[in-house]
Amino acid sequence: MAAPSDPTPADPWLRALKGRGAASNPLGRFETIRRHAEDDGWQHAVLDEEQPRPQTMVTEERARSVITRNDSPDIGFDQAMNPYRGCEHGCIYCFARPSHSYLNLSPGLDFETKLRAKSNFAEVLRAELARPGYVPKPINIGSNTDVYQPIEKHRQLTRAALEVLAECRHPFTIVTKNALIERDLDLLAPMARNGLVQVFISINSLDNQLAAKLEPRASAPHRRIKAVRTLAEAGVPVGVLVAPIIPALNDRDMEAVLDQAAAAGANSAGYTVLRLPHELKVLFREWLALHAPQRAEHVMSLVQQMNGGRDYDSNFATRMRGQGVFADLLRRRFEVACRRHGFGRAWELTLDTSHFVPPRESSPQGQLF
């Protein structure tokens, strides 16, 4: 019998967990100890009982640096920062899940329940922006995990970082799928008037039932559309990212998402296809077996067609868009819809770096000049 650490669709103990994307905790790729489970005949009795739901646990972390540099040719920004490790949204498709393996935690349930919060995030950001010779370039906030995930409501690390950026007049972009971003309009709107900010709302389906399984703790699709409208009405440039597109699962909604986003005031759009690096291959196949067993084989067949016959191809030239007939069809559909709405391409907006003022060091005596 297969071990829980290496789940397969046949595993009898796997059950969908309400409010969670993953159903298991497969070992990370750096683990040296492997565990093997044996069925002693009591497993079925345990399955019949109500299983406890995993609770979210947050660990404080002291960051030594927060701005990372990117040189990937298929990503539209050079700098990024993330105040949290792990993400409570629990999106089963999240390409960041494998990064939890670096913490000796599982990319499965651990990724969405055992979170790290960089408690000194704003303090370190201020120090990095104040370094002599720092050259301002737009910083993307939320390139790995969502900066407006539920714990942000109380931790407010993203809010604190935005306050530093506003003080320094530093340009930035945000990617999120949570309407909590509306809380920070008092910071975003004034910066938008100076060409310092662009927001992207990620919406890959308008089907609430599907979204509740794919991304269980993110804002509902209609709520994200409302956030697009709120941002646009406040003068904040906002785009929509139809990401990721999963063939035979949510690709049918592409045009509808773009239609509603345009009606709400979005001015740009982008898309990516499903990416399954490292342990994510196992987790997504497990999710399909639990939530879409009748179409699981078809979905994975199309995914492999877009990845040269494999579950995932990391080639920079194709990993975001895929390859082959189905990928070409997605591209053409997207381009037609964008032309219809007059959308610009995501990440094309040029943000203004000329306003940047390095932050002053904190002093108990205050500033005289």
Rank of each mutant, 00 (worst) to 15 (best):
E167I: 05
Y134G: 04
A117Q: 09
H298A: 15
P364Y: 09
H341P: 12
Q323S: 15
M300N: 09
A3V: 11
R169C: 15
E60S: 15
D313A: 04
A2D: 14
P190A: 12
E38G: 07
L349R: 14
G133T: 10
L329Y: 13
V66P: 10
K213P: 03
R319I: 05
S101N: 08
R340I: 01
V124E: 12
F77H: 13
A220P: 00
H170L: 08
L103V: 01
N194T: 09
E49M: 13
V299G: 08
N250Q: 07
M191R: 11
E279Y: 00
H100R: 08
G86F: 03
I141K: 07
D313R: 02
A218R: 01
Q198K: 08
I245E: 05
D328Q: 14
E163R: 15
A266Y: 05
Y102L: 08
Y148H: 06
T56R: 10
A189W: 09
M81I: 05
R34H: 14
C91T: 00
L288P: 07
L351D: 06
R339P: 00
S101F: 02
T113Y: 01
R360K: 15
D313Q: 08
L302A: 13
D71P: 02
V273D: 11
P73T: 08
G344T: 11
A22S: 15
E88V: 02
I139K: 10
D71I: 11
R310V: 06
P132T: 10
E123N: 05
R131I: 09
S268V: 00
A179D: 15
P359I: 07
D146R: 00
Y148N: 09
K177Q: 08
V242W: 01
A22Y: 01
Y312F: 15
P83K: 05
L210M: 12
T32Y: 05
P52F: 04
V325G: 06
V325W: 07
R223G: 01
A22C: 12
N25M: 07
K114A: 04
R116G: 12
H341R: 10
A127T: 10
G28H: 11
A127K: 15
I246Y: 07
S314L: 09
A317N: 14
Y84W: 03
H291N: 15
P138N: 08
T158W: 11
V325M: 12
P54F: 02
E128S: 09
G366T: 06
S5K: 04
M300Y: 05
K114F: 00
T113L: 05
G28S: 11
R345H: 13
H341Q: 11
V299Y: 01
N194W: 03
L283A: 07
L231Y: 04
S354V: 02
I174N: 13
T56K: 06
S205V: 11
F284V: 09
E49W: 04
A262W: 03
P107E: 06
Q305M: 10
H44Q: 14
G322Q: 09
E233F: 06
